[in-house]
Design a protein around this nucleic acid. Structure first.
Lengths: 225, 225
DNA sequence: CCAAAAGTGTTCCGTCTACACCCATGG
DNA sequence: CCATGGGTGTAGACGGAACACTTTTGG
């Protein structure tokens, strides 16, 4: 490529991964302690630098993949963070990406390798740099989109009970939901299908397992839950 | 600052300004023809590079200020755009910012100096690089937030008639609204105050002028229009 | 037999929608 | 006096919120 732009200073660009999971009825965030300076030992999101020959999305996907060993993960951009002194080391502009993963798909070996942990949002410690702001804005975005986009299924296994689904909603929204009203709404949604399977782990009676049907979702005019 | 991060390639970062205005009952976008290569002559958003000692917001505010001569303008980040070949010149990552301005505050001399024009969204030409995507996503965000945040007043003069306000809503949402229902909702909002002034320019009878009260807005529990 | 979770309907209230006519005035 | 835009109310539909009991079964 020719040099078209003069008198401009290139800057370091990173991506930071905000990884949410759902476990023990709570929304959790995957964070680790920094292993290098600046900020060694501080709790931090997992991130990486953007390379010259990859897009922002590719950088985020690669970074998340190296952390979790997963691909095909739901991911959405939260925003760009560019305060001059946001990173105590050097000037770095960071693009935050939010992912939702099913904790049971996640390889614990990787978790140990990178020294990251699932931490409940209720007990989130201070985070490195402006990472807390990124997390806050990610949750706000998640809440806004939860009722109009089929995001919640990313946090659950393929088959799930209605109680599990409701717990996901309650964890994200931070409020309790009426069971009957919630199920009434689900009954109207074609994309949430009852399967023939029954979960006997959490109750003696057993709970019907449901699944999200991508094809029915495509046919439905709108998602509203 | 010490060099903490090795083996990383810094990249060029720009900001692009998506400037919306309201004129002749339509939502318009401020764009100009590029005066340099790459892409000379193509319609484009107005942008600039981020300097080493300024934040992204500062870069966007500076760029918008140099274009319009205005400060204290409503501005919100739309997102970061980083496809590898998005800019035909060099690798540039761009952060898009969306502003809403009152066209009558805008200095026409500046408009000529920079060769930019107000173009109606209905007749938007092809735009340079990925600028059209930025505009599309800005409008979507604007629509989503219109009913829960007091954004619309940024597009109007301090005093405005209810018909003008309704036209802003119709232009942004792209659909007609029932006049009586719209006014009924406005009556419930304390932050939209009737003034003693009357506009006689657009009708013989005269229309009451209203204003947005920031202080009453702060007191109101929520904005819903 | 009992604890624990699953499953199921109805009523009420507030909100949104549809809809048509009179008013004031400048030209 | 009439054309133009300003201003007003009501009734029916719809969707969301509140609310409690029965069922199943493993231990």
């Amino acid at each position: 490529m020719a040099n078209y732009y003069f008198d401009t200073t290139p800057l370091l660009i990173s991506v930071d991964c905000i990884v949410f999971g759902f476990e023990e009825g709570k929304l959790k965030l995957l964070i680790g302690k920094r292993k290098m300076n600046p900020g060694m030992g501080e709790w931090s999101l997992y991130g990486g630098f953007v390379k010259e020959n990859e897009s922002l999305e590719q950088a985020a996907t690669r970074t998340l993949g190296s952390l979790t060993g997963l691909d095909n993960i739901y991911m959405t951009q939260v925003g760009a963070y560019g305060a001059v002194d946001r990173d105590p080391g050097e000037r770095v502009i960071s693009i935050a990406y939010c992912s939702l993963i099913n904790v049971s798909d996640y390889n614990e070996a990787q978790q140990n390798e990178y020294g990251v942990e699932w931490v409940s949002l209720d007990e989130l410690p201070d985070l490195y740099s402006d990472h807390k702001m990124m997390v806050t804005e990610a949750i706000e975005k998640l809440r806004r989109h939860l009722s109009t986009e089929p995001l919640c299924f990313n946090l659950l296994p393929e088959h799930f009970t209605l109680t599990q689904l409701q717990k996901v909603y309650e964890a994200i929204l931070g409020e309790e939901i009426d069971k009957r009203n919630f199920r009434k709404r689900i009954k109207t949604m074609e994309c949430i299908q009852k399967t023939k399977f029954v979960d006997k782990l959490t109750s003696k009676r057993g709970a019907a397992l449901y699944r999200f049907s991508e094809s029915r979702f495509q046919k439905e005019e709108k998602f509203k839950l």
